[in-house]
Design a protein around this nucleic acid. Structure first.
Lengths: 189, 189
DNA sequence: CTTATTTCTTAAGATACCTTATCTCTTTTC
DNA sequence: GAAAAGAGATAAGGTATCTTAAGAAATAAG
């Protein structure tokens, strides 16, 4: 199990002793997933939080009419899950699917809860993680409210240049909240 | 200073000793604000996190064209600030204005940081607060991507029935991302 | 290599939503 | 209590974005 990246991620915000690292690593489960595999499907219990070592994932919601809404992407060094359902033990609202073959570390809800008990400073780590996630989503809401599709597209490319090259136009369109046809039209200009 | 509500809010997630309560209360500053007063203006340093004892506030972003985008409302028992700028010591991106006369408790960034040092379990409290905030924003993004204006309006009324009666149609429209004229048109049906 | 599948592009017609303007009604101001 | 300001309604015409459809280009499958 490759834990190098995850410990480097954690050490940005808290420092762990060798014993703590070992304990934490013992809670993780490694997963390798092929392209197009589903990490999670709408309606299933969402019991794991995932850290991405490599590859690309996409979380998306399909509504009754089959419209695809991309909630988030994740690539190496990102955490991903259906947070609301993970935290509340509810059936997932979103699908999480592999866009590019992915190597991940999974942490179950139970083990995360035990971790907070055993090593309380993980509360600080996940506080910061959640702060950042909150601010990101809030900024996204703001941009959605104040910018037109063309400008949202430009912001997206600027903010996630690597992603922009590795996911399809259709997926970007679904993230931005426009149709692929319209994004294609925007691109021409 | 009325700290009843804030301690009831905190005790939903962590328990504090009398000494800890006293220490925490000592960090707060009470503020009474009249209708239309500004708690924060775009461009100003955002140095406080606010807890609302009573009243209603609105955070909104004005873009270059003067378009008004409501990022959030807050009423009693809610926390509000420009989180990204508060955490990073940056000039505020949003205005926070009083919609209904408000009584608030302010906690400065410095004092919050010292609080994390002195009473580490506040990391847990704010972790949970940030988790909830993140999930709320993510749900809002999802709804914005998958629902039409009419359905977003209905969701809003269902989720925040009290707010829906206490803020103007214009402000709700700005929260939903439509013009007041169009929301008025939606309402007729 | 060849076929099948998916992705991207293009374009015409449709619709959700916006702009501007006017009017009424309520609330605030002095 | 009159005047001013703000809030909401309504309607005509405009624009951003969607729908449908079909063809071209890239990718995957046999």
């Amino acid at each position: 199990m490759n834990t190098e990246l995850i410990f480097s991620n954690i050490s940005k915000h808290i420092s762990l002793t060798p014993a703590e690292k070992e304990h934490f690593a013992g809670l993780l489960e490694a997963q390798e997933l092929a392209k197009n595999a589903f990490v999670l499907r709408q309606g299933e219990r969402c019991q794991q939080l995932y850290f991405v070592n490599s590859g690309i994932l996409r979380a998306y919601y399909l509504n009754e009419q089959g419209k695809d809404a991309t909630v988030m992407f994740a690539m190496e060094d990102w955490w991903i899950t259906d947070m609301y359902c993970f935290l509340n033990g509810l059936p997932a609202m979103v699908n999480i699917q592999v866009v590019e073959p992915a190597s991940m570390l999974a942490l179950s809800k139970e083990k995360l809860d035990s971790l907070y008990e055993d090593i309380p400073k993980f509360n600080k780590f996940f506080r910061i993680l959640m702060q950042n996630a909150y601010c990101r989503e809030q900024l996204r809401v703001m941009q959605r409210l104040s910018l037109q599709a063309k400008d949202r597209y430009e912001e997206f490319i600027e903010k996630y240049p690597r992603l922009a090259h590795q996911v399809t136009l259709k997926q970007i369109a679904s993230y931005l909240g426009v149709t692929p046809e319209f994004l294609s039209y925007i691109r021409k200009k």
